[in-house]
């Protein structure tokens, strides 16, 4: 009936060959730079994001300094070559500012800020290739970078997108193509272990009846991502550890 393209075909496959509850391929790496205190690189499908963390260090702007917590400074930017259309993206355009603020809110939910009074943590994320779910990839990259920097956090913080296919089936981890063709995209940032939702954003209106199932799906996605990130962190730590020799001691 609808002229819109079907996002899931009869066999239950999406346009790129995934099933509704499958994430895109995630590959990640920690400690990609040596200059910052922590850094990470993540690929979610074709979306590629770099994150770097500096700090905690002394606040540069004395006025902003808080006596009981550290401030988190985030900066989001996209590379000019990140989308199909090559555009100049001056830092500080509306979208970047919005995403920076959202990222800052998400991170302040997990970082133990009260440990570092009068100090500041800088988080820089750079999107190298945008193919849907940019914000989610940024959050996941930032989590890894913060862990790499050794900053204490309460638990993993993960983000994932979900949407409705054919106005009925909830599906996970939306690619750019599906974002354009499909309906509303729900982005959630959650603490997957305690199942708390930190942040939730809808790209457009949709009927309340659909919300619970889409939300459940997205939360499920966050848990899956957490597993993958956890794996990556353990892998990274054991590699670094073995370089220092402690891995040998335990074996």
């Amino acid at each position: 009936m609808s002229a819109k393209q079907q996002l899931i075909n009869k066999i239950g496959l999406r346009l790129d060959g995934r099933r509704a509850n499958e994430l895109r391929r995630i590959r990640c790496k920690m400690g990609v730079f040596s200059q910052p205190d922590g850094s990470a690189y993540i690929e979610q499908g074709l979306t590629k994001v770099l994150a770097a963390v500096y700090g905690p260090h002394q606040t540069r702007n004395k006025q902003k300094a808080q006596h009981d917590a550290c401030i988190i400074n985030t900066q989001f930017s996209m590379a000019v070559f990140s989308t199909t259309d090559r555009k100049k993206r001056p830092r500080g355009d509306r979208k970047s500012i919005e995403l920076s603020v959202l990222l800052q809110q998400a991170l302040s939910a997990v970082i133990e800020t009260d440990l570092y009074p009068f100090s500041q943590i800088d988080v820089y994320v750079e999107v190298l290739h945008a193919d849907g779910g940019i914000y989610a990839a940024c959050v996941n990259a930032a989590t890894l970078a913060i862990i790499d920097a050794g900053i204490p956090i309460k638990e993993y913080i993960c983000a994932c997108t979900a949407s409705l296919a054919n106005d009925d089936v909830p599906m996970l981890d939306i690619s750019h193509q599906e974002e354009i063709l499909g309906g509303p995209t729900l982005t959630i940032t959650a603490l997957p272990m305690s199942e708390k939702i930190v942040l939730m954003e809808m790209s457009q209106r949709f009927h309340l009846d659909h919300l619970p199932k889409v939300l459940d799906k997205a939360l499920e996605g966050c848990k899956d991502i957490k597993e993958i990130l956890d794996e990556a962190v353990k892998d990274h730590v054991s590699k670094i550890g073995s370089a220092t020799g402690w891995a040998n001691a335990s074996s």
């Binding site: 060959g17 391929r25 259309d85």
Partner: peptide
């Protein structure tokens, strides 16, 4: 996992390269 890429003309008349994921199962 493989990628498909193709070149498409957009409304304004620019030729753009699109890259899409293509999962093999």
């Amino acid at each position: 996992f493989t990628t498909k890429s193709f070149i498409k003309k957009n409304k304004v008349g620019h030729f753009l390269k699109h890259v899409r994921e293509h999962y093999l199962r």
